[in-house]
Computed example of a mutant assay.
Amino acid sequence: MTLIKYSIAAGAVAIIAALTFILLTRYDPTQPYFSSHSYWFAKTADLKDVKRSITPRLSTELAEKGMNLNDPVFLRIFKEEAALEVWKQQGSQYQLFKTYEICSYSGKLGPKLKEGDKQAPEGFYRVSSNQLNPHSVNHLAFNIGFPNSYDRANNRTGSFLMVHGNCLSAGCYAMTDAHMEEIYLLVETAQKGGQRSVPTHIFPFRMTETNMIKHASSEWVPFWENLQEGYSWFEESRTPPRISVSNKSYTFN
Results as ranks from 00 to 15, higher is better:
1 M>Q: 10
1 M>D: 13
2 T>P: 00
3 L>H: 04
3 L>R: 06
4 I>C: 10
6 Y>C: 09
8 I>H: 04
10 A>H: 00
16 I>P: 00
16 I>V: 15
19 L>K: 05
24 L>Y: 14
24 L>C: 12
25 T>C: 03
26 R>C: 01
30 T>P: 00
35 S>M: 06
35 S>N: 11
40 W>Q: 03
41 F>Y: 12
43 K>S: 14
43 K>E: 14
43 K>N: 11
43 K>P: 00
44 T>K: 14
52 R>F: 10
55 T>I: 11
56 P>N: 06
59 S>F: 02
60 T>D: 14
65 K>V: 06
66 G>N: 06
67 M>A: 08
69 L>K: 02
74 F>A: 02
77 I>Q: 06
89 Q>F: 04
91 G>P: 10
97 F>L: 08
97 F>Q: 01
100 Y>N: 05
101 E>V: 08
104 S>R: 09
110 G>E: 09
112 K>W: 04
116 G>E: 12
117 D>S: 08
117 D>I: 10
117 D>R: 08
119 Q>A: 13
119 Q>C: 09
120 A>I: 01
121 P>C: 04
121 P>A: 04
122 E>K: 02
125 Y>F: 15
132 L>I: 10
133 N>C: 03
138 N>Y: 15
142 F>M: 04
146 F>Y: 15
151 D>F: 02
153 A>L: 04
153 A>I: 08
155 N>T: 05
158 G>I: 09
160 F>T: 05
161 L>V: 14
164 H>T: 07
164 H>Q: 11
171 G>D: 06
171 G>V: 06
174 A>Q: 08
176 T>P: 08
177 D>C: 01
179 H>F: 00
180 M>S: 07
180 M>L: 09
181 E>W: 00
182 E>N: 11
183 I>F: 03
184 Y>S: 03
185 L>A: 03
187 V>W: 05
198 V>W: 00
201 H>R: 00
203 F>V: 07
207 M>C: 10
208 T>R: 01
209 E>S: 11
209 E>L: 11
209 E>V: 04
213 I>V: 14
215 H>M: 06
216 A>F: 07
224 W>A: 11
224 W>M: 11
224 W>D: 08
224 W>N: 10
229 E>S: 02
229 E>K: 13
230 G>H: 06
234 F>E: 05
234 F>L: 08
235 E>D: 11
239 T>P: 00
239 T>A: 05
239 T>C: 06
246 S>K: 15
248 K>D: 15
249 S>V: 09
249 S>Q: 15
250 Y>E: 13
250 Y>G: 11
253 N>H: 15
253 N>R: 12
